[in-house]
Design a protein around this nucleic acid. Sequence first.
DNA 1: GGCCCCGTCAGCCGATCGGTTGATGCGCGA
DNA 2: TCGCGCATCAACCGATCGGCTGACGGGGCC
Lengths: 214, 214
Amino acid sequence: MNTDPVPSPVRLLVCDDHAVVRAGLLALLASAGDIEVVGEASSGEEAVELAARLAPQVVLMDLQLGDGIDGVEATRRITAAPGAPHVLVLTTYDTDADITRAIGAGATGYLLKAERPEELFAAVHSAAQGRTVLSPPVASRVMAQMRAPAPQPTERELEILAQLAQGLGNREIARALFISEATVKTHLGRIYEKLGVDTRAGAVAVAKERRLLR
Amino acid sequence: MNTDPVPSPVRLLVCDDHAVVRAGLLALLASAGDIEVVGEASSGEEAVELAARLAPQVVLMDLQLGDGIDGVEATRRITAAPGAPHVLVLTTYDTDADITRAIGAGATGYLLKAERPEELFAAVHSAAQGRTVLSPPVASRVMAQMRAPAPQPTERELEILAQLAQGLGNREIARALFISEATVKTHLGRIYEKLGVDTRAGAVAVAKERRLLR
DNA sequence: GGCCCCGTCAGCCGATCGGTTGATGCGCGA
DNA sequence: TCGCGCATCAACCGATCGGCTGACGGGGCC
């Protein structure tokens, strides 16, 4: 299949907080031959540090990283540096919020763990050359997003949502955010509209589903 | 390290819906030497079928399996047969609900993906001999559960919770479940008590957090 | 038989929520 | 400069919620 004459291995850094998954990825990628894993990170902070120190060509990044900074923030910091490596996101979820945030943070590609391993190998090479790679479901969502800009909650509205998920009443939310109760109600109305619900319980459910919280 | 005289490999079946993770596990387990992966399944149904056909000693089972039956149900069906293989759960979450359900379904062990790979190898061998293996955090939760039986929502209360997460009002929930509005309110009161909240939004948030829904 | 959990239902109350209309000020891009 | 999105606030209303007390029947367990 590969017509390139003796390709030099891609230098890769793997970041995933689950040791078993990380070890599995290492074993899998090692079998590819033309990929050299130069380091592994179990947290976002570690990934940022190793990316700067080891200068890999590509960073394979999970978005869910347990404690500390998440994969989006790690991606942002890694790609901020001049001559930074390309970040290829490899994660489980394909929600609009995750995709949008990852791309906004400077990710070169977005692959799902449900993808076939061969696709992963190909994606690593594409990412090394700065080419964008998207899993089909992810690509579909990106296209849909372009066609019909889905109404995303604003930053402020997300703050309201976070308080809502604590089970707070309007008065308590108002006090927590230093605004009036009337303002909280206004925000809630818009949140209901954007999420397609008409109760606070429904809003919390949809927000959790779309991973808009935490 | 290993002082056993020529141990025969453990016959293992791997079940995980994410192809990349599954391939990673295969590559990782192959490196162990004394483990032979005799099959892989991408769904619960496939796992049940292969467990019966391939007669492995151990099934490595993820609990989250996307569409179809989940890992708990698959575990239940696999362990139901006479002379069934031991099921070793390997998953991401260590919530009380997941652990309780998996053990109730007949799982021999419960390991977290955050565990070190060596622990996984050891756990597979332990499971092959029917010995129980629990990740430390899981063991802690099991012990805590034994000491202070946490108030779990009843089946009926979970049904109410599911309707709640749809954003339905009390009247709608009542109609959906063919009971009176008064009964819904009674259930809600008990749900609030068990989840440590006092609003429906808070109940939905906690329920989603503890993975009591879907 | 007694006990306890579960599920069912009633009525009452004050507090809160959801919907509406309308208004102000700010920053930003055309 | 004009418009537009965003955040802020006000007042009002009916509908709903949450908390309370009390009750009844069924099923499992000792």
